[in-house]
Amino acid sequence: MTQAEALQEYLLRLADSDMILGQRLCELCGKAPALEEEMALMNVALDLVGQARNWYEYAAELIDDGRDADKLAFRRDAHHYRNLLLTEQPNEDYAVTMGRQFFFDVWHYFTLKSLTESSDEHIAGIAAKALKEATYHLRRSSEWVKRLGDGTEESHRRMQDAVDILWRFTGELITPDDTDRVMAEAGIGPDPDQLAQDWRGMVKEVLTKATLTPGAEDAWMYMGGKHGEHTEHLGFILAEMQFLQRAYPDATTW
């Protein structure tokens, strides 16, 4: 794999993960447990889709085959999507929604933090802005994990269930593959070992405060999103998200 190929791949991963998690949060419009949460969820979703657009635009520039950011988002099928499996998991109850957000936010925060020092200036620029948003996302989801974990008996049970359900999707966040390694060696992407260590450290710290038990470190992990092998959920997400582009392929302006 050349560095150029790895870079395109890496940008699509960043973009797709933001996009799919943003899409999941859009599904919650009007369904949040409080009006304040309604606003916060849409705010986080807005940040994520906005970041996705930035990554897609840069990816489109490098791929340079005539596809723009919208084509990348709305005209690729599931096996071309490179998002983390975690991001495509369903909203379920608010514990799962927040657990998914928290595991993602920890990864996102440390990834972006490292990317602000990327040798690729374009990436560093996008990451600098995104990091501010992700810092707020992480603070918010950490607070919710603690509230739910250390709230009532019911919320504790639900939050622990959420951790247990989602744990098998967290390995993908911190298990590097060739693309990750090439990016790290080029000084473009984060050092995988450091990222894994930071992620584990913060997750452990917050879960402990939340009186929750993390999954086992050697637990079996479900991976494949980064290579386009997804769970059954992604196809349905895209069927909805890409409906207009698929139904009206001749429309060039919306």
């Binding site: 899409q23 979703a45 207009l244 919306w254």
Partner: peptide
């Protein structure tokens, strides 16, 4: 919310999300 998951472009999606917010 009925259309925010099906907006046709990134720009329109972001606009609609901001409006809902």
């Amino acid at each position: 919310g009925n259309w925010v998951t099906r907006a046709p472009t990134l720009k329109r999606k972001l606009q609609l999300m901001a409006k809902i917010q």
